[in-house]
Simulated scan of single mutants.
Amino acid sequence: MKLDKFDIFYIIGLIGTTVFMIWLLLFGTTVLLFSNLIFFWAAKLLSGFGLILTVTTAFLFILDLIADKIGEKEVRIFIIIQIIIPVLLIIFGIYRIISSLTPSGTPDTGFAYIMDLALYIFGIASITLSLYIVPLIKEEFEDAATGGGLFTRIKRGAKNVGRKVKKKYFAFRKQYAKAHIQDQTTLKEILTIWRHKLAVYLLIPIGIGSLLFPPITFISIVFWIKIFITDDDPKVYERIGLLVSMIFMVFIASLSYLLEWEFYTAIAQYTWTIEIFYLIGIIGSTIIFIYQFAQLKGVTLLDVKAKIGEIGAKGEED
């Protein structure tokens, strides 16, 4: 098999970064440990963003179950609750930051410790699995950034048109829950697309956050450049390299927390900064959720201003 210039560059890059990694590990260089913070910032940002998506998915599931049993009034209550929950999650995110500044300490044994450990590992593993490992195996990872091919965009557009038609039909039949399901499905799809896009964009921070393992940094950055700069399709070995890198980082991040390795303990005192990115993820997805929700319901800023003015006028009259 003939190697082209890029193949040679990639091989040299991997060899060079591997040698550098061995040198770092042999000489116990710890200065790069603090770059791990960036890795956890990116992971928490994705986690916070995914929280609103999880809520949207849960509401869609519930709505599917009870669609035939509720009317317009119940659907309105359902919508109000769904809008309130992101606000509560933002408050929860703020609480997480404050509580991480004054940690009470998690016991090293017992149920609380097991739950804390399980949630941490599940969070890291689920993010990596759903946003990196599975899309890479299916060869769909880079499609998140490009929006897919022409056929994918046509298919997505056809689905949106179909949902709009269904929504009008169900509204005409006064099946308000089923009409709202169409909007809910669209919201879920939009948030999923945004989250997958974010996962691709964050390859650079994840790569920088893996500086203690230079080959992973090299693989991540080259993959990102291929997608966004040179607009080339990554080769099979690049996908395999990124796949292996992500699996490796899941194990390292999980075992570091479990066994108290330096990869995590070196940055443990800065966990409050990680929670800030968790909050940013929640706020970002909430903004997208509310904006898209308003778009689907035909609500504009002018409508909101008019409603606020109306409420203010009533208050003055009272």
Rank of each mutant, 00 (worst) to 15 (best):
P107R: 14
F59T: 07
Y132C: 12
I80A: 15
L45S: 00
I114D: 03
D116I: 00
L131G: 00
G123P: 04
R76T: 14
D143V: 09
T152I: 03
F151G: 01
A118N: 05
I81K: 04
I85E: 07
L136R: 06
S126A: 15
I83P: 01
E139I: 08
L45N: 01
R153S: 02
V55E: 11
F141P: 04
Y120A: 10
D108N: 14
Y120Q: 05
A118D: 03
L131A: 04
T57I: 06
F122C: 06
K44G: 00
I137S: 01
L150S: 04
A118Q: 04
P135Q: 05
I137V: 07
L46R: 00
I97F: 08
I66N: 04
A58F: 13
T106A: 11
G123M: 12
Y120T: 03
D108V: 13
G110R: 14
P135A: 06
Y132P: 15
I70F: 15
G50N: 02
D64V: 03
I85R: 04
I127L: 03
L45P: 00
G149C: 02
T102W: 14
T57S: 05
F59R: 12
G93I: 07
G110H: 12
P135E: 09
D108F: 15
L129A: 14
L119I: 11
L119G: 03
F111L: 15
P135W: 02
I77A: 05
K138P: 14
T152F: 10
R76M: 12
D143P: 03
G110C: 11
L53G: 09
V75E: 04
A67P: 05
I77M: 08
I84R: 02
I90L: 03
R76D: 15
Y113K: 01
T146I: 00
P135H: 07
R76A: 14
D64M: 07
L89P: 02
G71K: 05
S47K: 03
Y113M: 03
V75Y: 02
P86Q: 07
V87M: 11
Q82K: 11
S100M: 10
I80C: 08
I70G: 12
E72A: 12
L117S: 00
I127R: 00
R153T: 05
G50C: 01
E140I: 05
S104W: 11
S104T: 14
L119V: 09
I70E: 13
I97H: 05
F122Q: 04
S104H: 13
I98P: 00
A67F: 02
Y132N: 14
I98F: 09
Y113W: 09
F61L: 10
T57N: 03
S47A: 00
S99M: 14
V75D: 03
G48Q: 04
Y95G: 15
I98R: 09
G105P: 10
Y95P: 15
F92S: 05
E139C: 04
G123Q: 14
L51K: 03
P103F: 08
K69A: 08
Y95V: 15
T54S: 10
D143Q: 11
A112K: 14
R76K: 15
I133F: 02
L53E: 09
I127N: 02
G123E: 10
L136D: 02
I97S: 04
F122G: 06
T56E: 10
G148Y: 01
Y132D: 08
D143H: 10
V87C: 05
V55G: 07
M115D: 07
D108S: 12
G71E: 10
S126E: 13
